[in-house]
Design a protein around this nucleic acid. Structure first.
Lengths: 207, 207
DNA sequence: GGATTATCTATCCATTGACAAGATTTAGAC
DNA sequence: GTCTAAATCTTGTCAATGGATAGATAATCC
């Protein structure tokens, strides 16, 4: 039956996408505790029971949102690394910048991704997406110290990620430089990145 | 009126304490989203409306729990630093160990403390408690590089905290070494701490 | 075209946070 | 000691939530 596109059809057509989009916005607005399935449904102009056909539970929707967050995070890291040229150290810094920029642009989503709330559904795609971001980082670190031992590499992968993740996490929560301008914070972030890369280079150069 | 202590009195007597204790346990069991005021009341053997007299809202209770978490975190940091002797670098490592140990022992509480959920009530005591843990850390870092410039000190305070916080955060979320034994993870944590302190010392020694 | 399947709506239920009003206890004024 | 005011707790209620079920509607496959 042909129906005017302006009239609201019985079937939404892209409800899954609409729910993810609405949910993500709601998440940034209200936080994890303020996140409700029914509000997502409302924003998608659909009955409150409709989401059940696309997501088994509210945790499923959160997991899906987190999974896409990891994909975007990976993309942001790769893009910024590509912009940083071919020098391995510069690329590692660039990837860190991409990481922090994504987190700053999506603070609540970022916290969700790295919180126990996202993993309650134990979705395999979520774990996979997280792993793939991890491997991006791992390769970038190893490229800086290709001659180092496996042990040193592993420790530096830990260390480098911890530095980047820790810094932006603390900033997002307001623990670091709450009174600083965003410009000053960015400088502090770059300083932390430099200190990290320097430490990695030094540790790798002394086998 | 004298009443046998075994009989349940109309007044609880220490309901506030009981709610905080029950809430903290519930938090570790069910996570932030599974945390409910009514379940706290049930565990304190009290009617569902009783908590309202001690906490204006559920966020208030969460803020109180987070505040106490910061106090315990500070205590754990101080205690471990004291056990580490007088050498500034060793004390910084020790404080980091205390930090990580607290987080590992109270994973959900730790995530609550460092999440936007805790700060929604904007309780001044919460901010104060967080600040005081921050100052412990700041002093420990500055003691390692007393001769460094203010700028370098500040950057190293950022960097050191980011390393410690980032590492334990990633471990708690299962992103780092999920298949490792707790013993192996502890070793990796110590390695990250060593790398951090080494970087701080080096940065401070080259003014 | 007809039947099967996917998608959405309409109801229903137990649970939640918050509020209101009443019961009980404690603490303070005298 | 007594009497009152305040603090504490209970019961009852409300709108909102997540989840489940049954039925309506549309799309797809044959």
């Amino acid at each position: 039956m042909a129906r005017a596109k302006t009239a609201k059809p019985y079937h939404h057509g892209e409800l899954r996408e609409a729910l993810v989009t609405a949910g993500r916005k709601l998440l940034e607005e209200k936080g994890v505790r303020g996140f409700t399935l029914r509000e997502c449904a409302r924003r998608a102009s659909v009955s409150h029971a409709a989401p059940a056909h696309h997501f088994a539970s509210i945790d499923d929707l959160l997991a899906e949102i987190a999974t896409r967050g990891y994909h975007e995070l990976s993309a942001a890291m790769s893009a910024e690394a590509r912009r940083s040229g071919s020098d391995a150290a510069a690329r590692l810094v660039g990837q860190g910048v991409g990481y922090m920029a994504f987190a700053a642009a999506n603070p609540v989503l970022f916290q969700l991704m790295f919180s126990r709330e996202a993993n309650r559904s134990e979705a395999p795609e979520l774990a996979q997406a997280a792993k793939s971001a991890y491997h991006l980082h791992r390769e970038a670190v190893e490229a800086v110290i290709p001659q180092a031992s496996g042990d040193v590499k592993e420790r530096m992968v830990d260390f480098a990620w911890a530095s980047v993740h820790g810094f932006i996490t603390l900033v997002l929560e307001g623990q670091l430089g709450e009174k600083d301008s965003s410009r000053a914070l960015k400088a502090r972030g770059l300083a932390a990145l430099s200190a990290m890369v320097e430490a990695v280079v030094r540790a790798g150069g002394e086998p």
